[in-house]
Design a protein around this nucleic acid. Structure first.
Lengths: 231, 231
DNA sequence: TAGTGGTCTAGACCACGCG
DNA sequence: GCGTGGTCTAGACCACTAC
């Protein structure tokens, strides 16, 4: 069982409520059960702590938390689809074009002026309700091809599985602002209503920036979740 | 040099721009310089990655990122004061009272109905400008004493240094909403303007919830920052 | 191919909770 | 005092970048 499978397996056991009193087995027991070393168990546990599923208390044990429902987990590998496992997610492409980077965009992407960049605008739905508007840019030197059909689906699985790119990490900046009339129309809201905004700068594992996105979320539907370690 | 000092030292060296080409020494070199094992170096680096200061590329090295200015770092031990090192932070207590937990609050705190809870409302300023309104509750069984003078200052250093409590972690839920007339007056904004909201549930290291806060940030001044590991 | 970060092993000892 | 998670050591080998 590799690292990813181990995480998924333990996650499933927790979500199926397999452990009594919301208390996990000790690290020693898990080592025994899975036949792996303590390093692997602790790495696995670390992931589950980061997504807010469990918490650890030194000298006492590991405990399951109340589940956070209907929130988008920041700092996680999981996209909108897996964050809402029981809901239907769909996307509508509003715009897709290929243009050259101007100076401002080139600075953000740390690329040359004139580099071809895909501009994609999508409206995303959750159970048929408009949930977010996504304004994203992809460096075409890394994401070599995009079309409407691909953009309707899961972009990240296309990028990882078809283009064989390996995604590393994302810098996220979160803010709130008034939305304009056009955005309000798309989200079934009013002009100047609040909007929850996340601007992502996404890096490949090799350190190159391949995607910059700003996502505007419907403030009535979207909540974000994060765990802060304060030790 | 303990773990915390090691982090601070390396952080300072990075911020003083000691390393050429934004590239850190290799792990081997850092092990040598500090006379510690690889485990300690990697733990230190992990912290600096989490606060968005540097990033790592397998097979290549560790690199300094462009600094994120004027943002609050989620998932970090640093409060508003250290997130804005060059700005003046002050607080004004709007309300402080001790009341018994009703059923709703008792559920959130996982405590008995009737447990005494401090209710504190503060207005926080950044360089003299109203920055956020903080509505917080503290379980009096853990935070045994609070008064206006203490609440004007840094609550967390009081809790850790004076009460000798050890803080563990916080669950954070982020959203946006319209603000009301009273909030608008305090923040020098208009009614129904957007507000950026964070609701924190804060646990001690022993797993007990001691504090629940909702902080309303001035949408014109506040941005949040986070790093998501997508590997 | 050399150098770098990523994963993993097999231990030891420490710090804290809980009875 | 016992059991639990937290820190740390001293290695080995793997995966990836850069040349």
């Amino acid at each position: 069982m590799n690292a990813e499978e181990l995480i998924k397996d333990l996650q499933k056991r927790i979500q199926l409520n397999e452990f009594e009193n919301m208390k996990l087995p000790t690290e020693d027991v898990l080592m025994e059960e899975y036949g792996v070393t303590r390093y692997r168990i602790r790495k696995t546990i670390e992931e589950l702590v980061n997504i807010g599923l469990i918490y650890q208390v030194q000298g006492s044990g590991m405990y399951v938390k109340e589940p956070q429902k209907d929130t988008l987990i920041l700092s996680s590998t999981q996209g909108i689809v897996t964050n809402f496992p029981d809901k239907k997610v769909s996307s509508k492409v509003l715009d897709l074009k290929l243009e050259e980077a101007d100076e401002v965009l080139a600075t953000k992407f740390k690329c040359e002026v004139g580099t071809p960049i895909y501009f994609l605008t999508r409206l995303r739905y959750l159970n048929g309700k408009p949930f977010s508007i996504e304004y994203s840019q992809y460096n075409q030197e890394m994401v070599s091809y995009l079309d409407e059909e691909i953009a309707e689906g899961s972009l990240y699985s296309y990028i990882e599985d078809e283009l064989n790119l390996s995604i590393g990490f994302a810098d996220k900046v979160i803010s709130a602002d008034k939305i304009n009339q056009q955005q309000a129309d798309l989200l079934n809201l009013e002009e100047n209503d609040p909007g929850l905004l996340i601007t992502d700068t996404v890096y490949l594992a090799n350190g190159n920036i391949f995607n910059i996105s700003t996502v505007l979320y419907n403030y009535k539907l979207a909540k974000l979740f994060d765990v802060a370690n304060l030790k």
